[in-house]
Every structure is written in C-alpha cells, then in structure tokens.
Nucleic acid binder design. Structure first.
Length: 423
RNA sequence: GGAAAGAUGCCAGAGUGGUCGAAUGGGACGGUCUCGAAAACCGUUGUACGGGCAACUGUACCGAGGGUUCGAAUCCCUCUCUUUCCGCCA
C-alpha cells in the first residue's frame, strides 16, 4: 500500500510510475485524491462538532459537582441537536474512509527507477550470467525420468495420496531434500540471518500484511473451518513477525531466514511447463527476509542478490540474473531480480529465486516503523529473497550432473548428504 | 468438544459512570554524582488523523464492532482471541 502522502505530493508521477507496471487505471489516483479531500473536510466537521459536545459534557459534570442542577439541565438541552447533526457526518466519514482504503489497496507499488520498461518476460534484462552449461550425452534424461530411474520421487504416489502437484520424495530423494534445506539454512545463518520456523498457516491480517490479500485469495489454499491460509512462501509469516512494531534504529537491520513448505494453487497454469518438478503445488523453500532503514534498502538488495548468487555458484549450476521489467513484476515489489538456473536436459531456464525490495509497501500495511533521530516514527523497508527454492534446483542438479556412473553431486553437499553420488 | 477466567501503555499491573491518555512499579532514554561503572537521585518516555507560519491545538484509540448516557476503560449486547482445568490426542 502506498502512503497517502506520496500520492498527494505527486499524483502525476505516481500515475507515470504505475503505468510502467501496465497499471493504467489513472482514475484510481484521482479517486484517491478526491476521497482524501472529502475525508479531511468531513473529519474537520466531525472534530469540531464533537469538541463542542465534549466541552459541554465536561461543563455539565462540573456543574453537577457544584450542585447547580438547573444550569446543568439547561446545558443538556443543547446536546441533542448537536448529536443530530453529527450522525450523518460520522456516517459519511466512515463510508469515505472505507472507500479510500479500498481504492488505496488497488494501487501497486511504484517500480524503482532501475526497473526496465517492458511487458512480458522477454523484456526482462539479463544482469549477468555465470557457470557453464554442461555437455550431456545424447541419451541424457530429464529429471522426471531420472527420479524414476534412481527412485527418488514418486509423482503418481502423490496423485494417489493428494493430487497432481504433490510429489512424494523417497529414500535418497528425501534425504537430498533434507540436505539441501540444511545446507541453505546454514549458509544463511553464517551470513548473519536468524533462523525462524514459523507457522505454515496464517490468518487474514497476516496475509494482508505482505500483499497476498485482497485479490490473490485464489492463489492460496484456504482452510474454511478456521479461516486460515496455507502459506505460499515463508515471506508471509516471517515478515509479519515485525507487524505493528516500532523499532529502534539500533535494532536494524533485521535479518531472518526460514525453511517452510510452500503451498500454491497455481490455478490456471497447465501444459508443458508444469512437468515434473517445474511447477508443483507443494514445495520446499528457504527464504531470507530483511527489514532495513529506508536509506539502505537498495544496498541491501544488492547484498542479498550477491548472497544468493554465491549460493548458486557453490552448487556449480549455470545461472543468470534477470532484472524484471515493469510488466513482469509483482504487485508489491519495487525492484525484483530473478535467478534462473539452466536445466540442461530440458534446455530451459528455471526460476529458483526472486529477490525483491518492497520499500515501504509492505511496511505501510504492517505498520513496521522505527524512530528516527528526530524522534519521529518512519516506515521501514522490507526485502525478501529465496535462498533457495528446492524443486527446480533439484531438477537441475539431477539433470546437469548425470553420468553413466550415476549423479555426481556438488562437493558442498557431501557433509549434509553423506555422499557425493546417487546411483 | 465441555467448563471457568480474562483481554488496559514497551512490560507487569491499578482503575467499575465525570479534568482518565489513564495510578503505581519495572524497563528504556537523558541528566547529576564518578577516573569510569554500579547504586542513589532528578527528568523524559504513546499512536493515528486533522487545524495552525509557529508556540500550540482538536478528534479518535484501554481486544474488535454495536448500544445506553449530557458524559463510558468503567454499564449492556455481539464477535474475536488468550489463559487455566477436564476430555481427546502426536
């Protein structure tokens, strides 16, 4: 949610910036300004009338205390007419506030100046590439064949137990999953992140805080009986840890990491891109979240990108980093860099991490603030990134490292997996 | 699932109709003292939205929403959540 103040100060600029995200409903901005004016006017009226009632009430109290009953009674007579005039103002005021709020949540975050123009994934800009693509033998298999060959994942069993998109990991497949999670967490902790293990279901307020609600209900699983949402990412519960907090500048930066399963309905996405591990409804991910001083967030974004990059490098996977164009960014983000790794047997780039700066967009919803040197409270900036999402990493590890002797895993995993080979 | 109690400021906790935005204690911050620290003492310690060049000032907020009243943290109704006990259970 954008700050009203920002919209007020420069509505023209706001319209220009949201247009970069192909949000072209300029009426929303005008509507917000109109409702804001209306609200201020109504509030002034309300405050003034209420002030009169309050001071009269106080006076009545004092008169009663002195025993001047008649004067008090006379004063009472003046109240009903004031209350009568107050009622419609108060109704209009709350109605206007409601409308204003519902318009405000429609506006996406403003993309930063670093965001490239463009509408589709083809317009994303490659920041840099690393690693080298392996040359695989002619009979190289895609990961969905490899997991069968080595009995690592059973997709059909998942269908039986739950449904499509809920893979069952087995034996070395399960252990590798566990090894990756542990390796990623340790790597993040070593860099100064504090580990959390948050709930996997959240309430409505929490889902609103990070921007999943309103409008994105359809993408989350919902437990109707208790009104809980299954988390689509650890970002949701973890960022909300600091909801409604006013931090001290010395508390900053806040750095958190968490492993959680992620649940996504992925309604409407079918076809060839969903094969195997490319797109599933439940997957594991290790997330990093930072809450930082507004002056620092872009440096921190760079730092997080480089943190993730080194992690990907340590797995010897060919990767590239994309600066997402306006049309491909998420609603809440101001700047997003995606990491893709190259899946050799599929000859395809797969997204494995997304590192975003939300500036004050989430903080404004969650009221995450700090006291600045002047003693004023200011919104903080929030950022998050995957470090890393597992399924596609696994797909690439299997495909890119297949040999006639089995799958040779990167050395860094040996301490966690207990071996460097799957055969 | 059954029963009971409760929800007040950063925390603990008082307050059951009138200068209550809220006692008191703790914490935090600033100061005095000290070579420095501790202790002691003094002081400061809300959030949001308005009005005003400013000093300052208005309104709302004691879990949420409604109601009674000239006036509500305090009374009434509804909801949500928390704690404890019982039941069930990894």
């Amino acid at each position: 949610m954008l700050q009203l103040q920002v919209i007020r100060q420069n509505p023209k600029w706001v319209k220009e910036r949201v247009a970069v995200k192909y949000f072209n409903d300029g009426n929303v901005v005008d509507e917000i300004l109109k409702l804001d004016e209306q609200r201020k006017k109504l509030q002034l009226e309300f405050d003034n009338t209420q002030a009169k009632i309050n001071s009269s009430s106080k006076e009545i109290g004092q008169l009663m205390a002195k025993g001047e009953k008649e004067k008090a009674e006379a004063l009472k007579q003046s109240i009903p007419s004031l209350k009568m005039s107050l009622q419609p103002i108060s109704d209009q005021l709350s109605e206007t506030e409601k409308q204003l709020q519902s318009e405000l949540v429609k506006l996406p975050n403003l993309p930063s100046e670093k965001v490239p123009a463009g509408r589709t994934p083809q317009d994303n800009v490659i920041i840099r590439e690393g690693g080298s693509k392996p040359s695989l033998p002619k009979d190289a298999l895609p990961h969905w064949e490899l997991v069968k060959k080595y009995d690592l994942i059973n997709f059909e069993l998942g269908n039986k137990i739950t449904g499509n998109g809920f893979p069952v990991y087995k034996g070395k497949g399960a252990k590798l999953q566990r090894a990756l999670i542990q390796y990623f967490l340790d790597y993040n902790i070593r860099a100064g992140y504090t580990e959390y293990l948050p709930p996997h279901m959240v309430n409505e307020t929490t889902a609103f805080g990070t921007g999943q609600l309103p409008d994105k209900e359809g993408q989350m699983y919902f437990v109707t009986e208790d009104k809980f949402y299954l988390i689509p990412t650890a970002e949701v519960p973890v960022t909300n840890i600091y909801r409604d907090e006013i931090l001290k500048e010395t508390d900053l930066p806040i750095r958190m990491t968490a492993y959680t399963p992620c649940f996504r309905r992925e309604a409407g996405s079918y076809g060839k891109d969903v094969r195997g591990l490319n797109r599933v409804h439940q997957f594991d991910k290790v997330e990093i979240v930072q809450i930082v001083h507004p002056d620092k967030s872009y440096d921190v974004h760079e730092e997080m990108v480089s943190h993730v990059e080194k992690l990907v490098q340590s797995l010897n996977l060919p990767y590239r980093i994309l600066n997402l164009c306006g049309g491909d960014m998420s609603f809440a983000s101001a700047l997003t860099y995606d990491f893709e790794v190259y899946s050799a047997a599929q000859d395809k780039w797969l997204e494995v991490s997304s590192v975003s700066n939300f500036e004050t967009f989430q903080a404004n919803r969650m009221k995450i603030r700090f006291k600045d040197k002047a003693g004023k409270s200011q919104l903080l900036h929030s950022l998050n990134g995957s470090s890393l999402a597992l399924p596609r990493i696994l797909a690439c590890l299997l495909e890119n490292n297949q040999t006639t002797e089995g799958i040779i895993l990167p050395e860094v995993l040996s301490p966690y997996f207990g071996s460097n080979k799957i055969d």
